[in-house]
Amino acid sequence: MIVTAKSPDGTEIGKAERHYHPQATNCRDTKMKYGAQWKVANLRDTSLQPYQTKADTIEFDLPAGVRTAEVTVDLVYQAVNPDNSYPIHSVTNTVTLDR
């Protein structure tokens, strides 16, 4: 999940990512491995679980003078490597401090 905040002029003022996936090592060192031929067992699992909700809170501090931001949340599936992405959902909200 990639969360991006932009000021009204299009300047990126914040970006955060969350990664949801099982993470495995070879059980001989502490380095995470990709690829079945190197992985031996999961040591952490942040993946999406059936019928469970994964909740996250991301905060951005707005730079001086910026009172409105366009926030976009892109949920993508990445297979094999981060360059091979499948968009799932994209939600954009405009947030303003002015009333």
Partner: peptide
């Protein structure tokens, strides 16, 4: 000045995603 983004992702798949 702060922006807070709360996200909730839910899956109905019969297994973890990804797998």
């Amino acid at each position: 000045p702060k922006v807070v983004v709360n996200t909730k992702i839910t899956t109905t798949a019969g297994h973890r995603i990804p797998d």
